[in-house]
């Protein structure tokens, strides 16, 4: 079969379609953000409003909330395309599946991860983070959220063919998120003590690089299993 589009065109068209769809039904973008905000405001209500305590807990709270809110949209990455059959068409097309996967994951990140990064200063204020820690929180979210989308896509690809994939998805994916959680929160903690946290960022970056190389292959073989 002849390839009508270049890889770049294919990437852009898949990406555009997903982002456009998300913007048409705004709830997909707004709901995870609202969820994130609500989870973060629940913590001060649960543990008390002392600023010191909140600042101490803030890295953990922000990151656990981020993990949970990316879980919300994860099921959606492939589900709609699977149900209307376009995923199957994409898989049998002469283009590499991993490229399509990267496009869809990037779209998922721009819908759920990026807004989180952009709004994180506001959430930091709610939890009394100082400016050093705020900076670290933004940077770790910037490196960490794409990682969450990539790892999560593996779980989404495995469960897309299942009727009740949602809860199973979080069981599969959340344990794999633990290293991200550990290094990201530790980077914010270190920065709050005004120490150098480039080490943690480097490890996060390394994990992102590994995931960027390996996850698309895992996702495409998972999709082939689910669709066949």
């Amino acid at each position: 079969m002849q390839r009508q589009y270049s890889y770049r065109q294919l990437f852009i068209s898949v990406y555009k379609k997903d982002v456009l769809l998300a913007f048409r039904q705004r709830s997909e973008i707004i709901n995870p953000l609202l969820f994130f905000l609500i989870v973060i405001s629940l913590f001060p209500l649960g543990i008390g409003p002392e600023p010191q305590l909140l600042a101490r807990m803030a890295p953990g709270i922000i990151w656990v909330a981020a993990l949970l809110s990316t879980m919300l949209g994860l099921d959606k990455i492939f589900r709609d395309d699977y149900q209307d059959g376009s995923l199957e068409q994409l898989l049998v097309s002469p283009y590499p599946t991993s490229l399509i996967v990267i496009a869809k994951v990037t779209a998922h990140w721009s819908i759920t991860g990026l807004p989180l990064v952009l709004l994180s200063p506001m959430f930091g204020l709610l939890l009394n983070l100082d400016s050093n820690a705020m900076q670290a929180a933004i940077i770790t979210l910037l490196i960490g959220t794409p990682l969450l989308s990539l790892i999560g896509a593996i779980g989404a690809g495995l469960t897309v063919g299942l009727q009740k994939g949602g809860i199973l998805l979080s069981l599969l994916v959340l344990p794999l998120y633990i290293p991200v959680l550990i290094f990201a929160t530790s980077a914010i903690d270190t920065s709050a003590m005004s120490l150098d946290y480039t080490g943690q960022l480097a490890i996060l970056g390394a994990m992102l690089a590994i995931a960027l190389v390996m996850a698309p292959f895992a996702v495409s073989s998972a999709l082939k299993v689910s669709v066949s």
Binding site: L158, L172, L176, P179, M207, A222
Partner: peptide
């Protein structure tokens, strides 16, 4: 498909396991 899906997950877990182990130790 169940078998193949579990195989993929087991492999993904095996790649992640050392990373998880060292991160937990470090934490």
């Amino acid at each position: 498909s169940a078998g193949r899906a579990s195989c993929i997950l087991a492999l993904v877990g095996a790649i992640n396991l050392p990373i998880i182990h060292f991160s937990v130790e470090w934490w």
